[in-house]
Each structure stands twice: as structure tokens, then as C-alpha cells.
Amino acid sequence: MALPDRLQRVKQWARQIKRDVVALWFAVRDRRTPLSAKVVAGAVAAYALSPVDLIPDFIPILGYLDDLILVPLGILLAVRLVPPALMEEFRERATTLEGRLSSRSGLVAILSIWSVAAVVAAWLVWRFIAAGP
């Protein structure tokens, strides 16, 4: 298989992932979607659409692992939980949507996690310093 063919397949896969994230966002807001699917889809869509990652992209290798592994696995699980007919409807709606959505709730969740981690780290450092030699 030639490199341009592989590149085309990767681009197609990326477009499908992006479409499915938006479709899952629609699934979360639809009353016909089962609760379990809403919970998983909401978490995946909020994270995928958040402008902030749990592991920042500037961290070598690890920064992209969440985007390359966690998001696709979460999407796969959420898509399986949504009834197929509904998922097809949501995919059609997502295909017609232009532009990129963003998730404020995802941003708040990720910033909250980082804030808690910073407070815990500061507390541990203070405790270590206070203990002294």
C-alpha cells in the first residue's frame, strides 16, 4: 500500500472520529438515548471537545496518548451503547454541522483536575519542607 493511500485512510478515520464526537454530543442531549450511553458519551464528548487535555500535548509522547488511545476507545464504547438507529441519525446531524464545537464543561472539568493536583502537590511540598531534616 502506497503512502498516499495510508495518509488518505488516516485522514478519513480522523474525520469519522470528529464526526462521532459531535454525534455523541447530540446523543447526550437526546431523551431517547439510554442513561448509560449518555454518561459515557457525555464524558467522552466533553473531554474530546475541551480545549484543555488531561495530559497536555507538550509532554513528549504521553501528551498525545490520550488523544490517540483514550478518546477513540471512549468513542467506540459510547457508540456501542447508543442504539444504532439513533447513532445514524446523530451522525447525519453531525455531518451537516459546520465548524467546531467546544465544551465549556470539559474545560471546567480538566481545569478542576489540574487545580486539585496543584493544591495536593503544594501541600506535599509544604509538608516535606515543614518536616525538616
Rank of each mutant, 00 (worst) to 15 (best):
M1V: 03
M1S: 12
L3C: 02
P4Q: 12
P4F: 10
R6W: 11
Q8W: 03
K11S: 09
Q12Y: 15
Q12S: 12
W13T: 09
A14C: 01
R15E: 15
R15N: 14
Q16T: 09
I17Y: 10
K18L: 09
D20N: 14
V21T: 05
V22E: 01
A23T: 11
L24V: 06
F26H: 13
A27H: 04
V28R: 01
R32Y: 08
R32I: 07
T33F: 04
T33Y: 06
T33N: 09
T33V: 02
P34A: 09
S36G: 07
S36P: 00
A37R: 08
A41R: 04
A43K: 00
V44R: 05
A46C: 13
A46P: 01
A46F: 06
A48R: 04
L49V: 01
S50G: 04
V52E: 07
L54Q: 01
L54S: 01
I55Y: 01
I55N: 03
P56A: 13
P56S: 12
D57V: 12
D57Y: 11
F58S: 14
I59Y: 07
P60G: 12
I61W: 11
I61C: 03
L62C: 03
D66G: 14
D66I: 00
L68K: 10
I69L: 15
I69M: 12
V71H: 05
L73F: 14
L73M: 14
G74P: 03
G74Y: 05
L76N: 12
L77N: 02
L77D: 01
L77F: 10
V79K: 09
V79C: 08
V79S: 03
R80H: 12
L81C: 02
V82A: 06
V82T: 04
P83Y: 09
L86F: 11
E89W: 02
E92Y: 00
T95A: 15
T96R: 15
T96S: 12
E98Y: 10
G99Q: 00
S102E: 14
S102C: 05
S102V: 14
R104N: 11
R104G: 14
G106K: 08
G106H: 07
V108N: 01
V108Y: 13
V108P: 00
A109Q: 06
A109L: 14
I110A: 06
I110G: 01
L111K: 09
W114K: 15
V116R: 09
V120L: 07
A122F: 06
V125P: 00
R127Y: 06
F128P: 00
I129S: 00
A130I: 00
A130Y: 02
A130E: 12
A131I: 00
G132N: 07
G132R: 07
